[in-house]
Simulated scan of single mutants.
Amino acid sequence: MARKPPGSGPDSPWGGRAREAARPAPPRDAAPRPDRREEVRLYGRNAVQAVFAHRPQAIRKLYLGQALIPQLQPLLKWCVAQRVGYRVVEEAELGKLAASSHHEGVVADVLRQEPGTLEPWLREVPEGPCCVLWLDGIGNPHNFGAILRSAAHFGVSAILLPERSGLGLSGAAARVAEGGAEAVPLLRFADGGDAMARLRRAGFTLAATLARGGADLFGTPLPQRLVYVLGAEGEGMSDALARDCDLRLSIPGSGAVESLNVAAAAAVLLAAWRARISA
């Protein structure tokens, strides 16, 4: 007899209709299922495993390919214990679910983690070295994911997003971040001037990062508590925002290209800060 794949047998939370019919109705005071708008569909092994490691209770559904069953055994056992539905599906269906060919064999629907706010975070941030990224106008999810990955690697304490920014965690960003999306908190703020004032009171220096015209990143002393302000892809940041910062920095290069991609620039900036505080 052919063996049924996990997710389709009697032990799966997504068992047959007969099992569903036999299951007693939930009590009237049971918590309602979250609105679908509160969920985000993630894909990629590291992205899904990071959610499982940091906030497993956020996982609502799991889809995986047959080949990943051995690698995801702890997650599958947790799903069974917590009655979280999972299904073993074909490659083509995974591609449709993720709307991407880069799903790496696993897709998950998880509760969206809403960004925090600046003031509570500042009350909790410890003294000593601390680096923060302020993303002004960045919109490409792949750039965002790459920035999240670098931020996690170099130990960035938070990423700041203006309230007007539509940037948020998506499946594409989480996959490119390779787990980094769960390691770095996102914070939103409404008023840029107020945010700058609060950060300065907490001992932070704000550095505008410019394609050209700023001080040499590698020849400028960097403070231990630093906020790198990164502008939008293409047009960069506004002159007014750059003037409002305490430092204006540029990454020197050969001049063969106009500038680095914003995600690549973020990695260079963070490496320079890490090297400086580790010296």
Rank of each mutant, 00 (worst) to 15 (best):
L169T: 14
L161P: 00
P185V: 06
S150P: 00
L133A: 07
A151D: 06
V184T: 07
P141F: 10
H142S: 03
I147H: 09
S165M: 10
G166L: 07
C130V: 10
A152I: 06
G139Q: 09
A152V: 05
I138A: 02
A152Y: 04
I147V: 12
F189R: 00
L135V: 10
L167C: 05
P185E: 04
G166F: 10
F144W: 14
V132H: 00
L186I: 06
G155E: 12
S165T: 11
H153N: 05
R149N: 13
I159H: 02
A152T: 04
F144D: 04
I147W: 11
N140L: 05
D136S: 07
E178G: 08
L161V: 03
I147R: 09
L148D: 06
H153G: 05
A183V: 00
N140Q: 08
A174M: 07
D136K: 12
A181Y: 09
R164K: 08
F144Y: 14
R188Q: 06
L133K: 04
F144I: 10
R164M: 05
G137K: 01
A158F: 02
S150T: 09
A181M: 14
F154Y: 15
E182C: 06
N143T: 03
N140D: 13
G139F: 05
D136V: 15
A151L: 08
R175E: 13
H142Y: 05
V156E: 07
P141I: 09
F189Y: 15
L135M: 11
F144E: 03
V132M: 00
P141G: 08
P129M: 15
L148G: 08
G137A: 00
I159L: 07
I159W: 03
G168N: 10
V132F: 00
D136F: 13
